[in-house]
Amino acid sequence: MSALLGPAEIRDLADALGLQPTKKLGQNFVVDGNTVRKIVRTSGVAAGDHVLEVGPGLGSLTLGLLEAGARVTAIEIDRRLAEQLPHTVETMQPGASLEVIPADALRVESVPGEPTALVANLPYNVSVPVLLHLLETVPSLESALVMVQAEVGHRLAAAPGSRVYGSPSAKAAWYGSWSLAGTISRQVFWPVPNVDSVLVGFRRGELPGDEDERRATFALIDAAFGQRRKMLRQALSDALGTSAAASALVERAGVDPTARGEQLTVGDFLKIARAQAASAGPEEGADQAFHLP
């Protein structure tokens, strides 16, 4: 088997780079090879697949993906790590197919080579925004397996009506289906985090609407969950004009105006967005019709 990074190698690399993992960048590095191989195995990545990785850090998971025969495009915001990663890979797995993009994943607008899978230990402080951004801007992604904070993972995989169903759940569902795929021990990280971690799997589905509709739907989701204890007719009153207007429009969409956001699917929010678009005069334009910022 190809070599993977262990605790000693990771600390040596960190010392050589003068690196102290920071909470600001969500840096917790996996130091256990068995965990890396478990993640790769669970992801279903096979030889020849093009994988996108975000936040590769010192390269623990990168090496596991390359070991499986994948070619990896890695986005790393920390320039020291981005510059070191190709050297680490060449030392431990000479000739492996790796491309490193030194950038903030939230600002990347495209990824070369049309990767089909996202596999990553995501920085926990920005995991949901990064996921939603990449699913929107890298449409070639058909599947994902990401390690995230347990609370976030449960939200991503939650169904309407669940206690933890929220804005991330509804927005993530726009792109496809999500499910919990395993738990990860705190002890396999350096430094050891003070939160539990889970793996979340994703399969892309057919997009339910176009880009204008997505933006309008997400704006309604934000409004509904910004006041999640209120009924839709109240929670959406600012976005849709008045409480009375919101109630009438939501009802026209076939949705109960006395329901709360946590009871609605992303499809329900889309129906409301379409009802609002239909109620606005064409001269107002799409952005005005949807009350977009």
Results as ranks from 00 to 15, higher is better:
V266S: 10
L58Y: 13
V148T: 06
K24Y: 02
F29H: 07
T137A: 12
S167N: 00
I39A: 02
V255A: 04
H133S: 10
Q187D: 15
I10W: 01
W174T: 00
A103R: 14
I184T: 13
A159P: 03
A286M: 11
L199R: 03
S140Y: 05
A277M: 10
V200P: 00
T88D: 11
S127D: 09
A181F: 01
V100G: 10
G95D: 11
R107H: 10
L207R: 03
R186T: 03
Y124A: 03
E83V: 14
F29E: 05
A286P: 04
R203C: 06
G55S: 14
A277E: 11
E211I: 02
R163N: 01
G182D: 04
S177F: 01
D196N: 12
E83D: 15
R260C: 14
A216G: 14
Q227P: 00
L199P: 08
P160A: 06
S237T: 05
G241W: 13
Q234W: 07
D222S: 12
A105K: 11
S169V: 01
P7E: 07
L264F: 14
I77D: 02
I184A: 02
E151R: 00
L134K: 02
S127L: 05
I272S: 05
K23M: 03
V266P: 05
E142N: 12
P21D: 11
F189Q: 02
A289R: 15
P257D: 03
T116I: 10
A246K: 12
L85V: 15
V36K: 08
G113Y: 10
R79V: 11
A8S: 12
Q27S: 06
K23Q: 07
A8T: 14
L81M: 12
R186E: 01
A219C: 07
H87K: 15
V128F: 11
G95F: 14
P86H: 10
I10M: 12
D222M: 03
A235S: 15
L199K: 05
T73A: 10
D196Q: 14
A248V: 01
A68Q: 07
A224Y: 13
E83W: 13
A223Q: 04
P257Y: 08
L118W: 11
G267K: 05
A117I: 08
S2F: 06
D196C: 04
A16E: 15
A244E: 14
Q276V: 03
G69N: 02
D287S: 12
A181D: 07
H154S: 04
T265C: 03
A289G: 15
A280C: 14
D268C: 07
E211R: 13
A68M: 02
L236R: 07
D212N: 02
V152I: 13
E262Q: 15
V198G: 01
D32R: 07
R204C: 08
K271G: 02
Y175C: 01
L236S: 12
E251H: 13
I221D: 07
N28G: 02
P257C: 08
D78F: 13
D15I: 01
A46V: 15
T22Y: 00
V195H: 06
L232N: 01
P86C: 08
A150W: 06
V195F: 08
V45M: 11
G153A: 09
A278N: 01
E67K: 08
E142Q: 15
E283S: 14
Y124L: 02
H154I: 00
